[in-house]
């Protein structure tokens, strides 16, 4: 059994600020972490390998420093990591990202499962998993909350939807995207950390992957960000001061009157 887990290195989102003059993100000094939702994908992959044998390969497309995320994945228990890095990949949208990842997956060879996180906390689209599946011409099951079984070339899963769980059976190979319910991510072990430190993270670029020119990066991306801005909040607020007992009474009366004016009571 071979399982491939695409993981993304993302900025620790709560720390990202916006340069309002230029409309660009200030990423300096912001810590880079493994997309928190990808830890669930790694955990599921390791659990399945523990049950069924085989190997877990983690891949990541990003700048050279994304290698640290792959080392973290290895420290958790992935067997190896491959970094997909090339200047030509910079600025890829979900279409181009899915393309690069799917070509890397093809190159790794025969596999049974690709397991993605539900979405990345920076881009927050959740589009890459289904995108990879489409490029590989494979079925995809999104929002997997539980894997009931993997055997005889199929897997049975529970898919979280708005009003319950779908019970689905997919033939392998298949792409899954998982939600938090799937597992509790383990912490890296000391031995894992040592292995991660000693191990090599190969870097694959566009040439090695034999990618078509113009299909990656900005030029290969159908979508383009044309503006980034801070949301403007705009409603005229009628403010009532309720700082003492009388203020509270008056504010409550006015609030009731206001709700009546708007036919809300």
């Amino acid at each position: 059994m071979r399982i491939i887990v695409p993981i993304k290195q993302v900025p620790e989102t709560s720390a990202v600020r916006l340069d309002e003059q230029t409309g660009t993100m200030i990423r300096e000094g912001v810590e880079a972490i493994v997309n928190p939702l990808d830890l669930y994908a790694i955990e599921l992959a390791i659990q399945l390998r523990e049950q069924l044998g085989g190997e877990v390969v983690s891949i990541s497309m990003g700048p050279p420093k994304a290698a640290t995320s792959l080392r973290e994945a290895v420290a958790m228990g992935c067997d190896r990591g491959v970094l997909l890095s090339d200047k030509a990949f910079a600025g890829s949208d979900t279409w181009a990202t899915s393309y690069v990842l799917s070509e890397a997956i093809r190159r790794i060879g025969v596999f049974d499962l690709v397991i993605c996180g539900e979405r990345a906390t920076d881009g927050d689209t959740g589009q890459v998993g289904p995108g990879i599946a489409a490029f590989l011409n494979l079925p995809v099951v999104t929002y997997v909350a539980k894997v009931d079984s993997v055997d005889n070339g199929t897997c049975r899963v529970r898919r979280r939807v708005e009003d319950g769980y779908e019970l689905l059976e997919a033939s392998l190979p298949v792409v899954l995207t998982v939600v938090k319910e799937i597992a509790n991510p383990r912490l890296p072990t000391l031995r894992g950390k040592q292995r991660a430190k000693a191990g090599d993270i190969p870097v694959w670029d566009a040439e090695l992957l034999n990618l078509q020119a113009g299909q990656t990066g900005l030029s290969g991306s159908p979508t383009r960000v044309v503006k980034i801005f801070k949301p403007k909040l705009a409603r005229r607020c009628e403010k009532l001061n309720a700082l003492d007992e009388q203020g509270v009474e008056l504010a409550a009366d006015r609030c009731v009157e206001f709700l009546r004016e708007r036919n809300l009571l």
Partner: peptide, 24 residues
Amino acid sequence: IFQVADLGIVGDLFEVVPVLTERI
């Protein structure tokens, strides 16, 4: 929150909410 509100009550919720509930 007041920047998106139509009506804002500036006060201690533990004072305001019981009175408001009664009035409603």
